[in-house]
Design a binder for these strands. Structure first.
Lengths: 194, 194, 194, 194
DNA sequence: TATGAATGAGCCTTCATTCAT
DNA sequence: GATGAATGAAGGCTCATTCAT
């Protein structure tokens, strides 16, 4: 009946609600309705949960992006949607995203972290590749490298907003718009892309 | 004899060396050569140390930036130097910067965190203001908001590099160059800035 | 396919290698290539294994003794061989012998322990009986009781040697020689046994 | 107010009463009326307590021996008293003595164990030395080595009696007498010691 | 008989915090 | 202000044992 999934689900839920630090393994097993010892059949510690959670978070993000971004849209609209999606996921899973993003969860599982984000990088990289071929973006752009820059830019500013500027919703939208514009400028969109 | 400073110094040193999680208050007081109880005369907990540490880290960063960036230089050179400085500080204090940057260290001291980064935002904001006045950058740029985007972009990618791509020094330089170019493009530098 | 034997063999092997305390039932079943639950079809706990193990150890010891001691030999030679055998077994199974010998493995299975050593006592007792009849040893000797003294003396000093004096092989031989002489003297061998 | 002593005292008391295995650190601190954490200021684990306990046990044994054995007595009486003393201590602290004697308490603290018994060996060694000088015992006796044999012999048989033959008090006395006689014979006492 | 995933009581250990000196 | 021995709540983790298959 999917105990592993139950653990991951409960963890995400509790981390989201009470914070990572405050969530004890005993809380997780209670929420997942399994025995204390069962946790250790699937994960060796709270930290070793992190890659699995990151994987789910990335899935959520990819799903949201794919849901919004359509092939027919202009690259401008597509990027706007991407920023929008990342902002919304970051809003919902603020602390978790911060943690995933900063890779703080122990240096030991780092290699796994790397793999986890690969699909997002790949997907955006392909998008840029296409746009480049179609001369919609600056020809000097290196798709793969730039995909990482975009993710870094958008996620970090989305975090900033929630950490520092959470005062009003309006501010968030403004920041989001500014980031989008910053991004479009950097990619040379709505220039003549010479 | 500056016990407060001793505590902060030792903390930074130990956090850098052994990681934040692994550093116990007992380690700090040992390193600082003070008694266990003395710690609590200056800080109420390990977490309440964080803003003080962040302050020092920001000072370090500001010092390094100011050391490199000169008034006579073109905005292009200035931004290149800024990226360089942030990359070098991030390299040296990887985990600490990640933590400061993502604000992960407990939500309770968040308000203090906000203030801490202000000088950097301010300083870069002023730089952009000047460049804008002199028409060296895109006129649509909002200096204050953009300052935050720049910091977000540069720090996050610097972190990425140390978390995922740490394989070779060469890769770091490439990424750094790409970020700089991305930034220049976004600001409209070396265009005619109309 | 002899699961009971597999359990005992694996236990002895693991106890010998990793120590008794450090050997978990899960280690034993893994080594014996049986399922966790199967263990309990044969033994009710780790402790209830002990008498079975002791039995095997005693068999090993008896085999080694019988292999060395021949009916044609003088009692002096025979006793020398016995000491030799016990020393060699103790050397090989140091911790196990200590445990068996001191009966430490819980008071609950004590009655079984008693039986286990019986063959050795019996065998030596008979040896002494013969020697006594042939006036080779002191006439005041009570064979059965003395058999126990001999085992106690030899095993305990063999242990001592391995616990304390393990420095050099030479020392072991000296101690062994001394024990043998002590024993011969106690039994009145090479006196006129009047 | 001697927390270290309190811990040792309580440990001995509880080990004696409930057995070593069954005694938890939490039991010890409760009995010693100290906080759980305080235990770890003095000892790193239950095992690391053992040498300290052994030391106390050896003191107890030495005290009892010295109390019984007088300089005016013949060597025969003196040895009888020694056997008596060891039997009585072993009776009282059966499991503890078995553990100390067999050195079972983890191989890690072995070097400390070695030192602990030294005073007893020394003392008996001196006694034998004197007896040898006065030609009361066999001239071939090596005092130091023989001291160890004696301790081994007496303790191991004392243990045997408590482990296997605990049926009646009478049996104990018989065994004790037999051991004494065995010992006297081995040392050549009441011979002409030529 | 055999399996092995699941159980959960219970112990050890850590470590931030206190307080008498 | 400074000390550091003492505290004890809190949680991680183990591992013998069970039981449905």
């Amino acid at each position: 009946m999917g105990k592993r999934e139950a653990i991951i689900d409960s963890s995400i839920h509790l981390f989201k609600t009470n914070g990572i630090e405050n969530t004890k393994i005993s809380d997780i097993v209670k929420d997942a309705q399994i025995a204390q010892g069962t946790f250790y059949l699937y994960f060796s510690s709270k930290l070793s949960l992190m890659p699995a959670i990151a994987e789910v978070m990335v899935e959520i993000m990819m799903k949201r992006i794919k849901n919004e971004v359509q092939t027919g849209q202009t690259i401008e609209v597509q990027l706007t949607k991407i920023v929008e999606s990342i902002y919304s996921v970051t809003e919902e899973y603020s602390e978790l995203m911060a943690m995933i993003y900063s890779g703080l969860a122990s240096t030991e599982h780092l290699k796994e972290w790397e793999t986890v984000y690969a699909p997002v990088y790949e997907w955006i990289s392909n998008l840029l590749e296409d746009a480049k071929t179609n001369k919609k973006i600056r020809q000097s752009i290196e798709p793969h490298r730039t995909a990482k820059l975009i993710i870094g830019l958008v996620e970090s500013t989305a975090e900033q907003v929630h950490l520092y500027d959470y005062k009003d919703k309006h501010e968030i939208e403004n920041q989001q718009t500014a980031v989008t514009q910053f991004l479009l400028d950097a990619l040379g969109i709505s220039d003549n892309n010479s």
